[in-house]
Amino acid sequence: MIKKKITNEEIGFWIVTIIVLIVVLGPLLWIYLTAFKSASDIFSGSLSKQILFTPTLENFKRLFTEYPFFASLFNTIIISVVSTILVMVISLPAAYSFARWDTGGGHLLFVTISTRMFPGVVAALPFFLLFRNIGLLDTHIGLILLHMYFNVSFATFLLYGFFKDVPVELEQAALIDGYGRIDILRRIVFPLVLPGIAITSAFCMIWSWNEFLFAFLFTRDIARPMTVLISSFWGSIEVQYGTMAAGVAIAILPILIVAWVMQRYIIRGLTFGAVKG
């Protein structure tokens, strides 16, 4: 019998893989285990209780009945979906214009991106004063506008790269073939940057879904999204691990699904240049 030799590289590969898996999956595992534990199991010192416990739904029941969980989930959905759509509506033509006609000679693009270069807190104070004066505090529109402020620059920059990858000669060929500008955008440019649009929307959506700082500062009650609600379980007297884990378990599900579905596009997006004919 031929014994397969295990090389040092293989051992190294597996060690690194296991470390990465623990780092990535460890917190997820903790969240989903904790969400189904009773309070006594969560604080139990014995290791066996940490893994082998009687699952319970009491955390979820508490979350759904004692807290406005669905209202804040709905807020999160509204804010992230609407802000992402609006961001794309603004960023798509902007990025195309930067990529095709070098609008503003590079300066305008830089200014757009530079809004992403300082800490968000810097923008928070002026926005807070402004929003207070025009009555946008604790409103959906207010938070949507703030998320747009941050995501438009990011999305424009990302889409700029994707549009840049579409050779201008393709558009010229289509012009000669008898198509107008709008038709060319629809039939040539748009299908070619579709993976880029998918990735960009996914990133914007995920960012908006997870955003905490602005949500925390600009909402109290009506427009409060899930991230702020979940943080409120971490009180000054006690930390409600069970309810918090249950909330997080639900909150991260859509993001996990989006990332999973987008996986194909993200990989295609990364190799976009290689696919070109």
Binding site: P167, E169, L170, Q172, A173, A174, I176, D177, G178, Y179, G180, D183, I188, P191, L192, V275, K276, G277
Partner: peptide, 27 residues
Amino acid sequence: SMAFETYNLYSHFSVYENIAFPLRAPK
């Protein structure tokens, strides 16, 4: 009509669609 030195084929279309593309132009 023009044939480019760099081909400039539409990579998301099949060869058939590439060739038929000028025929379908509304213009």
